[in-house]
Simulated scan of single mutants.
Amino acid sequence: MYGSYHRRQRRKPMGEINVVPFIDVMLVLLVIFMITAPMLNQGVNVELPQVTSEPIDTDEREPLIVSVDREGQYYISLGDEETPVALDKLGEQVTAMLSRRPDTPVMVRGDRNVSYGQVVTLMSTLQGAGVGNVGLISEPPSSEQ
């Protein structure tokens, strides 16, 4: 009774993946990123929040503090002595200090009126001197504001 009308054909499993939906998704993502990428490069005026932060536990090791004052002068202090240093010599001195004590934490203290570019240049110099992690020193917000 199972004649040609009731015969079922078995489908072979398809070994190919339909990539057309993936291509559609990728094109949509490409368009989204092309639209949003120029917006990421533009600067926005923001006021940074003042927050209280917990002090860093330095494990009783004296940190190496590199400072930038209002005039853009650089200083290195390890302990109580603070010595002025030129930016081109700063990397050599930091490398020498870290070669003697490689586990010394490095902190940056910058004046609030110094330009952002000088702090970035300082951090780049420290990175070139082999400093992996740099801490930023700040003060808690005053209660007057």
Rank of each mutant, 00 (worst) to 15 (best):
R61Y: 06
I65V: 15
Q50L: 13
D69G: 05
D59M: 13
L87R: 00
V66D: 05
Y74G: 05
Y74I: 02
I56K: 13
D57I: 07
Q50S: 12
E60Y: 05
G91S: 15
I76F: 07
Q50W: 07
E62I: 13
E62P: 01
E71V: 11
S77I: 01
V85M: 09
P49W: 08
S77C: 06
P55H: 10
P63L: 09
G72P: 01
E60S: 12
K89D: 15
P49M: 11
R61C: 06
A86S: 09
A86G: 02
G72E: 02
D80H: 06
D69K: 05
T52N: 15
I56S: 09
D69W: 04
I56Y: 10
L78G: 01
G72W: 03
G72M: 06
S67V: 03
E81A: 07
G72S: 07
E54F: 08
R61Q: 15
V51F: 10
E60A: 14
S53P: 04
E60I: 03
T83A: 11
R61W: 08
I56W: 06
P84W: 03
P84F: 04
P55N: 14
I65W: 08
P49I: 08
A86Q: 05
D80I: 07
L87C: 00
P84E: 14
D88H: 04
I76R: 10
T83Q: 13
I76G: 06
P63D: 09
P55R: 12
D88Y: 01
P63F: 10
L87V: 00
Y75M: 04
P63M: 09
V66Q: 09
D88A: 08
I65S: 09
Y75D: 00
V85W: 04
E71Y: 11
V51C: 07
P49D: 11
V85G: 02
G79I: 02
A86H: 01
V68R: 11
S77P: 01
V85H: 02
I56D: 07
S53C: 09
E62D: 11
L87H: 01
E60N: 14
E81V: 06
Y74S: 03
Q73E: 12
S67K: 14
T83P: 02
E82R: 15
D59C: 09
S53L: 15
Q50D: 14
E71N: 15
V85P: 02
S53E: 15
P55W: 08
P55I: 12
T58Q: 12
L90G: 03
P49Y: 04
R70E: 12
L64Q: 13
P55Y: 08
V66G: 06
V66K: 09
S53D: 12
L78I: 00
R61A: 11
I76T: 04
T58G: 08
V66Y: 07
G72I: 00
T58S: 10
D88G: 00
V66I: 15
D59W: 07
V85E: 03
R70P: 00
S53Q: 15
Y75I: 01
